[in-house]
């Protein structure tokens, strides 16, 4: 038996909304330690990795008697989650050898209980080993700022060059019709931690990435006030959205490599 009771259905809604356009079908791997999801986009350029820890406060109840994999079409899951109110408590339930995933939505005042079943899919997805590495540079910034940068620069070109150095981080685009550059300096005088830009630098990095994917990742902006960008030369960038009381959602994007 698997049963996970999440206090905020809005969190699950936001996660699925941010994934469903790039990642059509995905396996939720459930174990006693929590729920993980790893998936590649169809072009094998981007990878997402979701971790929801069972011992965090976001779950009111969590039970997973044996490890199970729930293969789900994320478009369908998005439709089901639209049937939940934002303040509803959502319970996910499945048997040990499941064909069906059940969603139960409880309204805050317990006056309305709705239940939906969806058929599970057999998804043959390739799991990749994500190496645990120290990155040359980790940029922490407000998530809405990163969203704005990606959106602004995508109007002029397809790829952004991210340049991390000791003063801050530069985002540059050069297209056929024009070019643009946004410089972010490290902030020291901002009151709120979530408004700060910080750059932890071991080594400077200059790397180009496809804006199409970065813009898609920023659909997760509402999950978190801040976003962390981890970069090392000639390796995928990690775009991480911490999820309060649950864990995190990370996106990995392969760099553009000079031919």
């Amino acid at each position: 038996m698997f049963e996970a009771k999440m206090l905020q259905s809005s969190v699950l809604k936001k996660i699925i909304e941010s994934l469903k356009d790039l990642f059509a079908d995905a396996n939720f791997d459930c174990s006693s330690s929590g729920i993980t999801l790893q998936d590649m986009d169809s072009s094998h350029v981007a990878l997402c990795y979701l971790k929801l820890r069972s011992d965090e406060e976001g779950f009111e109840d969590y039970r997973c008697d044996r490890n199970i994999t729930l293969g789900v079409n994320l478009g369908l899951m998005s439709k089901i989650l639209k049937c939940a109110g934002n303040d509803d408590v959502v319970t996910l339930r499945a048997e040990d050898e499941p064909n069906i995933l059940t969603f139960i939505f409880d309204s805050k005042n317990s006056e309305r209980v709705s239940k939906y079943d969806i058929k599970l899919m057999e998804i043959d997805s390739e799991l990749l080993g994500i190496p645990d590495t120290d990155y040359s540079c980790v940029v922490k910034m407000p998530s809405h700022e990163f969203q704005r940068i990606c959106s602004n620069l995508s109007q002029l070109g397809d790829s952004v060059t991210i340049d991390c150095h000791k003063e801050g981080v530069d985002f540059k685009v050069a297209g056929e019709q024009g070019s643009g550059a946004i410089k972010l300096k490290q902030t020291t005088s901002v009151d709120k931690e979530e408004d700060q830009v910080t750059v932890q630098l071991n080594e400077p990095v200059t790397q180009s990435f496809a804006l199409k994917f970065l813009c898609a990742f920023t659909k997760a902006t509402s999950l978190s006030d801040t976003v962390n960008l981890s970069l090392t030369q000639d390796t995928p960038v990690v775009v991480e959205y911490p999820i309060a009381q649950h864990g995190y959602l990370r996106f990995y994007l392969a760099p553009k490599i000079e031919e």
Partner: peptide
């Protein structure tokens, strides 16, 4: 010119 790398070039199959 830049070529788009594949994530599979960096992360090997588990």
């Amino acid at each position: 010119t830049n070529k788009q790398g594949s994530i599979k070039e960096f992360f090997k199959k588990r």
